[in-house]
Design a binder for these strands. Structure first.
Lengths: 228, 228
DNA sequence: GTTTTTGCACTGACCAGTCAGTTCAATTGC
DNA sequence: GCAATTGAACTGACTGGTCAGTGCAAAAAC
């Protein structure tokens, strides 16, 4: 018999970045390139239509690859999807964490860290809108095959925000009365929804513009006048 | 071969119950009850699995009704879904608007109105978590049959928040610099995501609790100490 | 010469939608 | 009262189609 499927390497790949300069992909196998193309095709299609409504044939066609190749590279349609999820959220958390660390290094306070993370979130969503869409669509579903993957991955992302909040409380920068997990959720939601609306309905606006509006909201400069 | 067993689940939760003897159309109470059962079944299943992954057979079975009945009552699976959407968002906007009007009547300011709307949003999500889930999952998708319905319905809901923000700016209660549509999105997102996380991951917490946390965030009492 | 991809035919399950027939409940005629 | 009648509501087996996943020989890439 042929030992087909199940030779799955966990390889770091970039989601939407089809283009040049893959930094770490030095040993970029042909296989990896194919997987990359499949990720890209799948992420868009699933974001638009949902997982179930997207067929493997479509994914293969969009990726410019034969259907058999999909199954040579992934055990199943949902495994492909799960790896997509894992990888995408990995990128996001890395980016959030880096933003937080950078402000710390620059001597900024925790409010600055949150602000930097908002920006990092916006940058991510601007770069990978389809992934974000798809992630939001799946996040609160229950009874799905990849539920546990999703939970793990969600917690990783939210934890970054929670950590900053907790540090801020410890440092006396935030009120001790704040509810850390809930506030973290709310902040994530604020950015997520605002950004998705931005991408969907006002894509012509600049990131700085959107960031400024959210910053203002974060710092409670909505009620009360601005000093100007 | 084997006939499906009928099930006798009686779910009292109504997404749009105005069942008390509405003598309106044609009088057919029986039909109305059937439609209601179908809504209830569909909303849960679609929230859990997504539209495409939910079969009409499942919906019928959960509603305790034959498949043909679904098609007797609705032109198609997606029409059923669209009507569900329209109705659910209708309930939400009505509730938001009422909250805003009530505070106005009570002589509250626009901040109070926003706060009341946050609460109304939470109450809605607590009562109809499945609907909320499903709504969020579909909202930013593109290329779906019910896209236009969704857009209309989204705008209705967000507009209520936008109106309050605009009034607040006009009344000098909010900074003139706020970006009304974006801030409205962000606020909606804050409540939506916080509430869904609450329902999914900490359902034991009280609504008041969650409301308090979001209130604090809204009023910028996160950074800086609380008085008291 | 090994790994990866291709092309394509095939299967078995599943599913949206249909339709001829059945039940229900209200009304009519007696 | 109580059949007979009627139309609305409901039923479920059936159809035509779709799709995930398979199998495999041959070609291409490395």
């Amino acid at each position: 018999m042929i030992p087909k499927k199940a030779l799955h390497t966990r390889v770091p790949v970039t989601i939407g970045a089809m283009e040049s300069s893959s930094p770490t992909t030095g040993g970029s196998t042909r296989r990896e390139a194919t997987r990359q193309k499949l990720y890209e095709a799948a992420v868009t299609l699933i974001a638009e239509q949902g997982f179930s409504a997207t067929t493997v044939d479509e994914i293969a066609e969009r990726a410019g690859v034969a259907k058999g190749t999909v199954y040579y590279n992934f055990a199943s349609k949902s495994v492909l999807f799960e790896e997509l999820l894992r990888h995408g959220v990995g990128l996001l958390t890395a980016s959030l964490r880096q933003a937080a660390e950078q402000t710390a290094r620059d001597g900024g306070g925790k409010v600055d860290a949150l602000d930097a993370m908002i920006r990092a979130g916006l940058v991510f969503i601007e770069r990978y809108p389809a992934f974000t869409q798809l992630y939001v669509a799946e996040l609160w579903r229950t009874n799905r095959a990849w539920q546990s993957t999703l939970m793990v991955v969600r917690q990783q992302a939210v934890a970054v925000v929670e950590d900053v909040l907790r540090d801020g409380v410890a440092a006396g920068e935030f009120s001790e009365e704040i509810d850390v997990p809930l506030t973290a959720s709310a902040l994530v939601g604020m950015v997520l929804v605002a950004a998705l609306d931005w991408q969907s309905f006002q894509p012509e606006r600049s990131l700085d513009d959107v960031h400024a509006a959210l910053s203002r909201l974060l710092q409670g400069r909505v009620s009360g006048r601005d000093r100007d």
